[in-house]
């Protein structure tokens, strides 16, 4: 027997939750699907495939004010931006759950990022299992799978005209208290098959591929538009600047950046440690495949395939992994 919710009851549950909480879910605007606050549940894209932008939008938005600084009675007052209400992030796929877990690594490492930590604390993750995989998906190669509930508070698996409901966390249980769940013997469908990419051994082999001409050839094609980093659930580069507004109130603003942008590594005096397009392109992949595993304990990729889909010149992370393995194997054979 499994917990079950009908499609109508699911929407009613979400509608009820919206009274006291903010509900964010996949919303389509001008052909682009991204996680955004929901005005009415009918707007939610219930089978988004992979959204064009990742759920990091919610925790680490494209641009946000972290705090304001003002003067009152001769004293300096720092006012952090806080979340008014608790939130539900609905419609994540299991790989997106992994994405949130990866985003936690840098942002919740001590000292934790206050803005991120608050949003994470006050948000419950309600995921949707994948009905089908896409050609660019490779989540199983990164340790997740289409029905993976590991990083979600609630997972819904579509079956028998409704959803099988799974929840192992306290947050999830609490949220489900208001849901009209029934006991059902509907069978859990088989998860869709997912293409695989040879990720195993990549971290060990990566240092041997660093100086290969492959990166220069790849950079020939890359236009350095940053889009792969912006849609990536695990890329977390940002830029911070202060703005002085009316009455001398200072706002500290954080916006997305990419390690591939020429200005990102530029330091005082104009020096750039990664001066070529190839060096910057390589940096993004080495951060994912070598530095993140070494420093934070996990490869910085979920296999969601968003970067593959968005790239205007077909820089394909799956092809890069495969090529790195091939080059690495050759170098390893030739090594003393």
């Amino acid at each position: 027997m499994a917990k079950f919710i009908s499609k109508t009851d699911l929407l009613a549950w979400l509608e009820g939750l919206m009274k006291e909480r903010t509900l964010a879910a996949p919303i389509k605007e001008e052909g682009v699907t991204r996680f955004a606050p929901v005005k009415k549940v009918a707007d939610i894209v219930m089978d988004p495939g992979a959204t064009d932008f990742s759920p990091k939008d919610w925790f680490f938005p494209p641009s946000e004010t972290l705090f304001t600084v003002s003067k009152a009675d001769g004293k300096t007052v720092i006012t952090p931006r806080t979340m008014e209400k608790e939130a539900i992030l609905f419609g994540l796929h299991p790989c997106d759950g992994l994405g949130v877990a990866l985003m936690d690594l840098p942002f919740l490492a001590e000292p934790a990022d206050a803005s991120y930590a608050e949003k994470r604390e006050k948000t419950t993750l309600v995921g949707l299992a994948c009905r089908q995989s896409r050609p660019e998906c490779f989540c199983t190669s990164l340790g997740s799978n289409p029905f993976d509930a590991t990083y979600l508070d609630v997972l819904l698996i579509e079956a028998g005209g409704g959803y099988i409901v799974q929840s192992k966390t306290e947050k999830g249980q609490k949220l489900l208290a208001s849901a009209k769940l029934t006991e059902s013997n509907v069978e859990t469908p088989a998860p869709p098959a997912v293409n695989t990419v040879p990720v195993e051994g990549l971290v060990a082999i990566a240092p041997h591929v660093f100086n290969d001409a492959f990166w220069t050839r790849l950079a020939d094609r890359c236009i350095h538009c940053n889009m792969c980093a912006f849609v990536c659930p695990a890329c977390y580069c940002f830029d911070i600047r202060d703005y002085v507004g009316k009455g001398g109130v200072v706002e500290r603003v954080r916006s997305w950046e990419s390690c591939q942008a020429a200005g990102f590594t530029k330091i005082a005096g104009g020096y750039t440690p990664r001066p070529t397009k190839a060096a910057r392109l390589r940096q993004r992949f080495y951060h994912k495949f070598l530095y993140m595993p070494k420093q934070l304990g996990s490869i910085g990729c979920t296999g969601c395939g968003r970067c593959v889909r968005v790239c205007p010149v077909n820089i394909d992370i799956r092809e890069i992994i495969t090529t790195m393995q091939k080059i690495g194997a050759k170098v390893a054979v030739g090594a003393p």
């Binding site: 682009v32 641009s63 236009i223 350095h224 538009c225 889009m227 916006s255 997305w256 200005g263």
Partner: peptide, 24 residues
């Protein structure tokens, strides 16, 4: 309002080749 300021438009444009773009 939707613009995420990735500057992909600039990067793809044959006419945008300034060594340092005004936006940077």
């Amino acid at each position: 309002d939707r613009c995420v300021r990735c500057y992909a438009c600039r990067q793809a444009c044959p006419g945008c080749y300034c060594t340092e773009c005004f936006v940077d």
